Simulated assay, not measured.
Amino acid sequence: MPKQISAARRTSMAGLLTAAALALGGCATYDVTAPADARADAPAAAVKAMDARLAAAREAKNGEGAGGKTGRTGGAEVDCRTAKCVALTFDAGPSEHTDRLLDILKREKVHATFFMLGAHHVDKRPAEVKRIDAEGHELANHTWSHRILTDIEPAAARREMSRVQDAVRRITGKTPKLMRPPQGRTDESVSAISKELGLAQVLWSVTAKDYATEDPALITKRVLEQTERDGIILLHDIYRGTVPAVPGILKELKRRGYTVVTVSQLLAPAKPQPGMVYRP
């Protein structure tokens, strides 16, 4: 029997499936939900637990005054049910630009989700992977070699995802819970493999197409034009023009009242469900 889903989720699914059919030239079927729907459908126990963490965080902050601690991944101090949140994500690193990006994020007290590539990135830059984790950012999977998962056999798709899982776990002791399929291309088979591996799939609503320009001003303009509440911003920490754009993006987002969060913070009190596709 098909799984029951909310009306809001069915609407979101219909929109995504239409987009997928247009992009792929065929029909793709898989579960999909938007961040707001995920939060609304969170189990009562998860809601209660988050409310308790928020209350404890407020109490601790009041006790610490202006020197209170900032939120970390999964952050109890951020409540996107009430805050105007947007998730910041970076694909395809780490690279020679990642340390500079991490310096900026640390200075701005912002946490992001890093969808990392395995070959020539995770395997070549374990120090950056460790730093991403140590500074409270979210570790996520972007496959081993950026092969289009819908174009390869299921066994090959499983290797593309599982090799990153294994490599990140060896480096940090943690296993990613999120995966972004290359080019956003997924289907029922990819979703089933993701579910087996404990990976939720995360697409996006904002893209600067920073792979096609090195102009930080243009990257900034594109991001700000597209960003709305509950959005997921896609950038890459491998291109020369991207990291210089980040300070301006963050400054303007904050001026507009946005709280910049990780993907898991955006979904909380819900937890990412393996196999599910999340997209605003």
Rank of each mutant, 00 (worst) to 15 (best):
M1G: 15
M1D: 14
P2L: 07
Q4Y: 11
I5F: 05
A8R: 14
R9H: 12
S12C: 13
L17R: 09
A20R: 13
A20L: 12
L22V: 14
A23Q: 10
G26L: 08
A28T: 07
Y30N: 09
P35C: 08
D37Q: 07
D41Q: 14
P43L: 03
A44K: 10
A44S: 11
V47C: 08
D51L: 13
D51E: 09
A52E: 07
E59K: 15
E59I: 15
K61L: 15
E64R: 12
G67Y: 08
G68P: 11
R72N: 12
T73Y: 13
V78L: 14
V78S: 14
R81L: 07
R81A: 09
R81V: 03
T82H: 09
V86I: 01
A87T: 14
T89F: 03
T89M: 04
T89W: 02
A92I: 13
S95T: 11
D99W: 00
D99E: 04
R100F: 03
L101M: 09
L101I: 00
L102H: 00
I104E: 11
L105Y: 03
K106T: 03
E108Q: 07
V110M: 09
H111V: 08
A112T: 02
T113F: 05
F114Q: 02
L117W: 09
G118P: 01
A119E: 15
A119N: 13
K124S: 14
A127K: 15
V129W: 01
V129E: 11
K130M: 11
K130H: 10
I132K: 02
D133K: 06
E135C: 12
H137G: 05
L139W: 01
N141D: 00
S145I: 07
D151V: 11
I152W: 13
E153Y: 10
A155Q: 11
A156F: 08
R158L: 04
V164Q: 00
Q165S: 10
A167C: 04
I171F: 10
K174M: 11
P176Y: 00
L178H: 01
M179P: 06
Q183D: 13
G184M: 03
R185W: 12
R185C: 05
T186K: 05
T186N: 12
D187C: 05
S191L: 10
K195T: 04
G198A: 02
G198E: 01
A200Q: 01
Q201A: 05
W204P: 06
S205P: 02
Y211T: 15
T213N: 09
D215C: 04
P216Y: 02
A217R: 14
I219S: 00
R222P: 08
E225R: 14
E225V: 11
E228W: 03
R229I: 02
D230I: 03
I233L: 06
T242Y: 04
P244H: 02
P247W: 11
G248W: 02
L250A: 07
R256G: 02
R256Y: 08
Y258H: 01
Y258G: 01
T259S: 04
T259A: 04
V260G: 10
V261P: 06
T262W: 01
T262K: 05
S264I: 03
Q265D: 13
Q265F: 10
L266D: 08
P269A: 05
Q273K: 15
P274A: 06
P274G: 00
Y278H: 08
P280H: 05
P280G: 13
